[in-house]
Write a protein that binds this DNA or RNA. Structure first.
Lengths: 406, 406
DNA sequence: GCGCCCGATTATGAAAACAGAATGAAAAAA
DNA sequence: TTTTTTCATTCTGTTTTCATAATCGGGCGC
């Protein structure tokens, strides 16, 4: 009933050590003491316990010029599963305890797949990966698209899958897996991945802007993923702009689907030539790549459209930079790099509208984790969930456990 | 040279107690133990020391139904000075150690005042308040307008005062006062004030949107003011929107000065009637209040302009809500409440474009601290600066001290 | 090869923090 | 009224954490 300072503080410190080793990917006892502001003696004791409990192992003594061998996480201690999905596919990653990839798997979704089938495919994918694991799986992280209710573990709404409202992902997974399961926004998962082992390493404050079939934003502030109330922060797709044609959402302007649709509408009002006719005939099957191809083949109008896209992307990035003054803006998703025109224009616009003092530190970089970034991030988040290092969370966990027992 | 865990941890705990008492405005030892997750025995010991050192005093025993008398900060221990200024005036507040106002003072700036005169007026204002203090002044906080470099203690640029570039406020004040001096963005100071004792109390995540002669944003995340890299976060005035007339900044669209200018430009292209002629004749001296008055007197065109202003404000608020999912959006500055039309339209637009799950928790409220909010916030920030309760800051301070000595 | 140096790691006694019991005093119940 | 409950605080013995000093163990100059 009452909080237990001793237990929570002990756990916080040991988890802090594990997290620091996880983040740094191996370090000396002395580094831990300095970085965590804990006495070296205590670090030695804790590390001894963690070694005995199998969480840590000692690395190659030769790697450390002085003192004892560097510490690593014991990769065999366990594994973390991360599942990421969107309209077209699901991806899963199984990581060992040190965060290295053990297995990864991708399955495509058929067009117009039903809600039930999505859930079935997701659990099957997870099942396969869990079965392939040669060490205990410690958690399952699900990076979900659309509007996500993290606390409730469900997707509130996702417009690119049919009937995808109020989807209780966590409850559904809980019937299959007897493991800690959590649901996160997929862009936030990407941001977390890039933060830990990607372009956002070494940053305390950075944001990850993802533009593909939708627009999303992951915000890392002071070294922690920011979720906002209900974990709804970062809905950049719903940013609204007043235009001559009425209010427009960012999704409609810069996401792949929105941009293609708007371009189609525009083409219908213009002069037709053979290339454009081909595009118009594709109708709903028209893709961003088609437009890029035609533009690069010489269609001036489409080239202008791409420039406009780049301008809008650059303004979006500049607005975010001016608001949050991050150290970096990591770009994910294919849209910013769909064409040199777009990227160049985006970069130029970003530089033009970002305030100079912010521009000195904030710059655009590409994500480095690739297509599995979301799944990786979701898997890695499992570490922090299983071993939280802040006392507040630990007190909460302890209270919940006692309520269950009592 | 080396960090001193014991010293920093001790200081962090005692400062944590002081900060908690400051925030809560008086509480029991037991509350402190629970809220800070410290053993009650230790709280008792620390409180005893703090009482002996004169930081704390015991209040009326009758106020606490059980146990010992509630604890308060000793108002006589010291005082904090806060200075806030913008294009038209400077305001100063002197607070006692418990945060209560001891004295406040306002001085108007003459139109076209020079940079040197501004600085002179500011130091004079501060000097007067310091001289009026009957207890030691512990810090001077300056809430500055425009682009502010907090770390460097200077204003980088402020367009509404002449020649206001690279203004070394802290250094200038340091020649007059031998006290800790810090410079903050004025909207952030307002946000901090509202967070501590205004509309943002009890919120972990909230934002403060100020729209007057400029547009600014203060962001509180996880109970702490967010500054971003270089303390430049929150430059909402520079948010850019693509329009038919080219890119437009938020300042140009929704700030009092920007809106008035744009309205003037529009009026020049329209039909003239007696009221409008009067407005046009005012030229550069035209104010928002004039426009509101004419609109309320029945000018349909101006009424539409006000509606547009409200729409734009609502979109801005909705965008911020969708990005940051705060618990509240506190409105400061006169523009949102310059007219019922504006406020109503703003509210409606905000509700229309904010995502429903965010809307369930985020809502617009007015600030409660009034015109001195910035000065108050700057003064109160002094408490946290003089008594930082996080180990990182304390370690830094200690290291700096040692470097000075060594 | 031999000591010396530097810096990480381990002993050791002292100080701090804790759990649990005891205290005291008001509120609630009998 | 008396008794019981409740709850903030203090007391007591124990455990944890720390500062300091000692130790250790590889590079480096001689």
């Amino acid at each position: 009933m009452h909080p237990r300072p001793r237990e929570t503080k002990l756990a916080a410190k040991k988890n802090g050590i594990l997290n620091e080793v996880f983040r740094s990917g191996g370090c000396l006892r002395f580094d831990l003491a300095r970085r965590l502001n804990i006495n070296a003696t205590m670090v030695g004791n804790y590390v001894q316990e963690l070694l005995a409990e199998g969480f840590l192992i000692e690395g190659d003594p030769a790697a450390a010029p002085k003192g004892r061998a560097p510490l690593h996480l014991n990769p065999d201690y366990g594994s973390f599963l991360g599942i990421d999905f969107e309209a077209l596919r699901a991806r899963g990653v199984l990581c060992d305890f040190a965060g290295n990839v053990l297995a990864q798997k991708e399955i495509p979704f058929r067009n117009g797949i039903s809600r039930d089938n999505v859930l079935k495919q997701l659990t099957t994918l997870a099942q396969r990966l869990v079965e392939s694991a040669d060490r205990p799986v410690l958690s399952v992280g699900i990076a979900a698209p659309g509007q996500v209710d993290c606390a409730g573990g469900r997707v509130l709404h996702y417009r690119l899958l049919s009937d995808f409202d109020q989807v209780p992902l966590r409850d559904r997974f809980a019937t299959t897996f007897d493991l800690p399961i959590f649901v996160e926004d997929n862009i936030r998962a990407v941001a977390y991945g890039e933060f830990l082992r990607g372009s956002g390493r070494e940053c305390r404050n950075f944001i990850c802007l993802a533009v593909r079939s939708g627009v999303g934003l992951g915000i890392v502030i002071d070294g922690r993923l920011y979720g906002g109330t209900n974990g709804m922060a970062g809905e950049a797709g719903y940013l609204v702009t007043p235009t001559a044609d009425g209010p427009q959402l960012a999704t409609e302007m810069v996401s792949a689907t929105g941009f293609v649709k708007a371009t189609l509408r525009m083409l219908r009002t213009r002069q037709i030539n053979p290339t454009r006719k081909q595009l118009l005939e594709k109708g709903a099957r028209l893709t961003l790549a088609d437009i890029v191809q035609s533009a690069e083949a010489g269609d001036e109008l489409l080239r202008e459209r791409l420039e406009q896209l780049g301008t809008h992307l650059g303004m979006l990035a500049a607005n975010l930079a001016n608001l949050l003054a991050p150290e970096r803006i990591v770009l994910a998703g294919e849209v910013p790099n769909c064409s040199r025109v777009v990227r160049e224009r985006m970069e130029r616009t970003f530089r033009k509208f970002t305030l100079p003092p912010i521009l000195t530190s904030a710059y655009l970089v590409d994500g480095t984790l690739g297509g599995f970034a979301g799944a990786l991030g979701a898997a890695w988040m499992g570490f922090g969930r299983c071993f939280p290092d802040d006392e507040g969370t630990l007190v909460q966990q302890l209270q919940q456990n006692e309520q269950c027992v009592g």
